[in-house]
Nucleic acid binder design. Structure first.
Length: 427
RNA sequence: GCGGUCGUGGCGAAGUGGUUAACGCACCGGAUUGUGGCUCCGGCACACGUGGGUUCGAUCCCCACCGGUCGCCCCA
């Protein structure tokens, strides 16, 4: 048996971590502009957090959680999504008492879902997410959507589609739910087995079933939009008006339901329309969850947020051929060759350069001088410092500028300042 | 959980029921006694996913499993 990373997980190697870091940096800058602050919650929680937060009837809870018992017999679960945990933290730390509501939070982190991996789907996935808790202003809904779109736009993505919908408030949802059951019940036997149980547990989900998509009853199904009460209607209109004001284009899809139980009012999803993106197109999804905080024992507090898949974001960048600027040049390579005395001197010199803040590397493979030059070339070294027995005798080193091949001798005492100066000229 | 497809050195990629399993890239060395990127030459390489079966013999044929990948369900 060979040791391999578990199915659905992956190593992100140095050649790629630079891309991740770039993307994360861009996102953080945007969060800073929108004045959201980072929260870090545990990577696992008591299982109930997700059962109650996400909802018992959801796919996530029913078949996708990594749940285990710890040595103390507690049932714990690797977080499958971010919102429930942030809501738990919000209540536990009594952030609802903050004078600065809404509490505007963002997070980065790994989420875990036991699913069959495919393009754009991993068992350990990385998400960025945002939660704004404590405000029921349509403007914050629009802000959160804007923030998500801003990220994609800043990174240069073009083929995007924003879909929004309103699920209404409790009253609207109940009216719609009753209407749905009444509508589909006569056809119960004709629907797929999933939908038959959905009809009882969560009739809303019947609407986004792909198997029964073509069933005649689907087309005539009551739309949530027709059941929004006045307040819900007005709220949705206002959100759209704010999006219009920001010139963010969107499509209203009455069938956009979102899989999690906690959503109400605004729901949205951002998808990629780029060719070659694979079967899964959702880049980010989110919505309003006004009952979630009370579910965790907090005061009645509204909230809205979204989760964004970072693997999918990276994939979208690749599919749209967007280059990520990565600086791979090495400032300085020390090529030491000769006696053991030189080796010691090389170690010392490399240390000095690094201590002075100069990015420096050297050879550890016992390469010949020519091999060291090749290595320096591979590393895209700007300068190579030669240190051999001759140099040691004369207390000099030779500095070579790789771009031009120019070189000059410098006294060992002045190497650091000399290199610093040369690097300054380079940039 | 179900289905398609794939599984040969670090990477890419030929190939065969039977003596040392091509080749390319990469890497190391030499041509150039202490100087990279080009060229030529040489070298290195823990490779046929795992376990069974058929066979005198299997990397090749059969089966199972494992893994990758793509898709279904659903989602980030």
């Amino acid at each position: 048996m060979s040791m391999k990373a578990p199915r659905g997980t992956m190593d992100i190697l140095p050649e790629n971590t630079a891309k991740w870091q770039y993307v994360e940096k861009q996102i953080k800058e945007i969060c800073d502009a929108y004045y959201y602050h980072e929260i870090r919650t545990p990577i696992f929680e008591h299982t109930e957090v997700f059962q109650r937060g996400v909802g018992d009837s959801t796919d996530i809870v029913q078949k996708e959680m990594y749940t285990f018992e710890d040595r103390g017999g507690r049932s714990l679960t690797l977080r499958p999504e971010g919102t429930a945990a942030v809501a738990r933290a919000f209540v536990e730390n009594k952030l609802y008492g903050s004078p600065n509501l809404p509490e505007k939070l963002y997070y980065f982190g790994s989420m875990f879902r036991y699913e069959r991996p495919q393009k754009g789907r991993m068992r350990q996935l990385n998400q960025f997410g945002v939660e704004a808790m404590g405000s029921e202003d349509p403007a914050i809904d629009a802000e959160v959507i804007d923030l998500a779109m801003q990220i994609y736009r800043r990174l240069g993505l073009k083929s995007l589609k924003l879909v929004i919908n309103s699920l209404g408030d409790k009253e609207s949802r109940k009216a719609h739910r009753d209407a749905l059951v009444a509508h589909f019940d006569p056809y119960r036997e004709e629907l797929c087995s999933d939908c038959q149980s959905r009809l009882d547990k969560n009739p809303l989900r019947v609407l986004d079933c792909k198997k029964d998509r073509d069933h005649p009853a689907m087309k005539t199904a009551p739309s949530i939009l027709d059941y929004l009460n006045e307040k819900s209607q007005a709220y949705f209109e206002q959100v759209k008006a704010y999006l219009d004001a920001m010139e963010i284009s969107y499509t209203v899809d009455p069938n956009l339901v979102r899989g999690l139980d906690y959503y109400n009012h605004t729901a949205f999803e951002i998808m990629s329309e780029a060719d070659g993106f694979g079967a899964i197109t959702t880049l980010a999804g989110g919505g309003r969850y006004d009952g979630l905080i009370t579910e965790f024992g907090g005061p009645d507090t509204p909230g809205i947020g979204f989760g964004m898949g970072l693997e999918r974001l990276l994939m979208a960048l690749q599919v749209e051929n967007i280059d990520i600027p990565v600086d791979t040049k090495l400032d300085c390579f020390v090529a030491g060759f000769g006696s053991e005395k030189v080796r010691t001197e090389t170690v010392k010199l490399v240390h000095q350069l690094r201590s002075a803040g100069i990015q420096t590397d050297t050879d550890y493979q016992h390469r010949k001088m020519k091999g060291q030059l090749k290595a320096a070339d591979r590393l895209k070294a700007k300068f190579v410092i030669f240190l051999g027995d001759d140099e040691l005798d004369k207390q000099l080193v030779t500095i070579k500028k790789m771009g031009t091949g120019d070189q000059k001798e410098v006294s060992v005492d002045h190497i650091v300042s000399e290199i610093k100066e040369l690097l300054l000229e380079e940039s």
